[in-house]
Write a protein that binds this DNA or RNA. Sequence first.
DNA 1: AGTCGCATTGACATCGATTCTCAATACGCA
DNA 2: TGCGTATTGAGAATCGATGTCAATGCGACT
Lengths: 138, 138
Amino acid sequence: MLDDDAARLQARGYRLTGPRRVIIAALRDAGRYCTASQLYERLRGRSVGLASVYRTLELLADLGLAERRAEAGGEGSFLYCSPRHHHHVVCTGCGTVREIDACPGDDLARAVERETDFRIDRHKLDFYGVCAGCRTTG
Amino acid sequence: MLDDDAARLQARGYRLTGPRRVIIAALRDAGRYCTASQLYERLRGRSVGLASVYRTLELLADLGLAERRAEAGGEGSFLYCSPRHHHHVVCTGCGTVREIDACPGDDLARAVERETDFRIDRHKLDFYGVCAGCRTTG
DNA sequence: AGTCGCATTGACATCGATTCTCAATACGCA
DNA sequence: TGCGTATTGAGAATCGATGTCAATGCGACT
Ligand SMILES: [Zn+2]
Ligand SMILES: [Zn+2]
Ligand SMILES: [Zn+2]
Ligand SMILES: [Zn+2]
């Protein structure tokens, strides 16, 4: 877990507890979307309760340090997100997610404002494709 | 419900039933993300079962005619999507969603390919802001 | 380092959204 | 119009997610 994440927690008055450290580190290291039960399994033996996994994921989503996604048939899953503005590239083969800096920027947002008469505040952009590893393997 | 949607269903061998027509029309007309129970309420008296609402939403998502979203604390919700490539503008005030043509295009996708060594197939882009109505009202 | 207040935790109970089951129905086709 | 089968509605069943609560441990202040 990075100091930056710790700072974010404490800046909002949350305590930096053992379970939180471990859960956040696990989500970070996963480098992909994880469900609560997946993280819970990965942390067996570290005495972390499933409820705490749910609570911490919820907290991270609230702090902007994680992004929630809808699964097709079942559980929700979370992806660790660094605090800066960024977008994602998702490998449809292995599930790996990488943060990227490429961004359509304000120009496109302004074009959208003209087209719709909305005032645009933010945007979300994800790319889907196949990573180098999956191309050679598969 | 549009003929285009009907054609998509039947092209995959699905039957064009009464409940499906009604549910799809309701989702289309909503112009926003809807939960299964919201649609079910809206269709009271039309003898459409909740299970059929769930099944039809799932089917639409599968056909690419609806997009699923994760809600914070509770139910999943679905948004009707036309078949062509497009993106969304979501009003954070009233929930209205509009489809737009603005798109970062292949240039950005190629930049991402160079940056990551992924082969990019598709992307998803949403803008969030406040619509004209919500600006004057609120 | 020691003390104290209270946020946080783990285990389990509970809730509720989604899926399953199955006999009855109604599409699509000849 | 008649048949075969996908689909439906209602209720049961599932299980992901949240609530409860006594025990714990973080962190602030000595
Ligand atoms: Zn891959
Ligand atoms: Zn951006
Ligand atoms: Zn609005
Ligand atoms: Zn696009």
